[in-house]
Design a protein around this nucleic acid. Sequence first.
DNA 1: GTCTATAACGTGATAGAC
DNA 2: GTCTATCACGTTATAGAC
Lengths: 192, 192
Amino acid sequence: MSSAERLIESTRELLWERGYTGTSPKEIQRRAGAGQGSMYHHFAGKPDLALAAINRTAEEMRAKAEAGFTVPGTAMERITGYLRRERDVLKGCPIGRLTQDPEVMADPGLRAPVEQTLSWLRDRIAEVLEEGRERGELAPGLDPRTTAATVVAVLQGGYVLARAAESTAPFEQAITGVLDLLAAHTSRPAAG
Amino acid sequence: MSSAERLIESTRELLWERGYTGTSPKEIQRRAGAGQGSMYHHFAGKPDLALAAINRTAEEMRAKAEAGFTVPGTAMERITGYLRRERDVLKGCPIGRLTQDPEVMADPGLRAPVEQTLSWLRDRIAEVLEEGRERGELAPGLDPRTTAATVVAVLQGGYVLARAAESTAPFEQAITGVLDLLAAHTSRPAAG
DNA sequence: GTCTATAACGTGATAGAC
DNA sequence: GTCTATCACGTTATAGAC
């Protein structure tokens, strides 16, 4: 792996673990096994390197989510599969956590991928729910857009509760709770 | 207001806006209109001052929540009142945001009030839901503890979505979505 | 491309005058 | 109690050798 590559990967890890404000170029270099000169040769500075790291993480997050949504099955099964997917719960969402970083949110370039990724996720879940409604799997009274916002919020908030408790239990409970609530709005035409 | 008091209040604001890692003693002093000497006279250092600030914020958060839960009404009305309460949505939750701060979570003294406050909130909401179930307002199939975790997660996650979008809209949608889902599990003995 | 040296500035804290 | 001076260290970057 090239120096530039190792620098990006180290930055991704540190942004996840410590956020943008809490991450220094020095620590990035140390973890990447690269010197100052190498970093400033490949990247203009900390914001430039962070942008590369955030863009890659955002892309990866979309790909993982999309893989879950594209599988066959009812809307409820696809949402369940997405929510129950294996996750590093105690580390939280690498994109969602950046919303708490004032320096990220103050920089339009760094904020854009964060905004777009979470916006895309809500839209995508709303589409899945809309498809389920069209197929008669979901109650017509269920609004796809508000429900999608709720699903994404439970996920993001579940991470917060897990980190606070230093336990995955509240995350699992939050997911189970919203799936139980959703289940009451489903009918299963195939299974009767 | 005394210097010590102004220092605590400035710290509370800065922890909310910038987090612990992103807040320097110098900035706290500037905002409080106090010098270095004053701060280090009243507090042992940054962690000590932050602890005082976090404890006060945690206390305030509990008091506000409790005020919402103590009002008369059905469980659904009390939960709705709590979730619909006026909030500084784009600033997010002053306690929840600390879960993303690695330095806070690494310090047991600072972490404790964060953990206890969110744990208390889940317990308190579970109690309200349990009361509703006992009164026949809520479906017996609804588990109070998992549902409470979902409610708190929607709130915490709603803040994340709002900050990402720089808009309160996704927060409102997430709240509306979970209340709609909950509504399907309620019966209103009084209203028929 | 990668290294080391240097620098201007900020951080978190201490010391001691007043 | 509050002030200013000072300090060791870290941050973010630039310069220039190799």
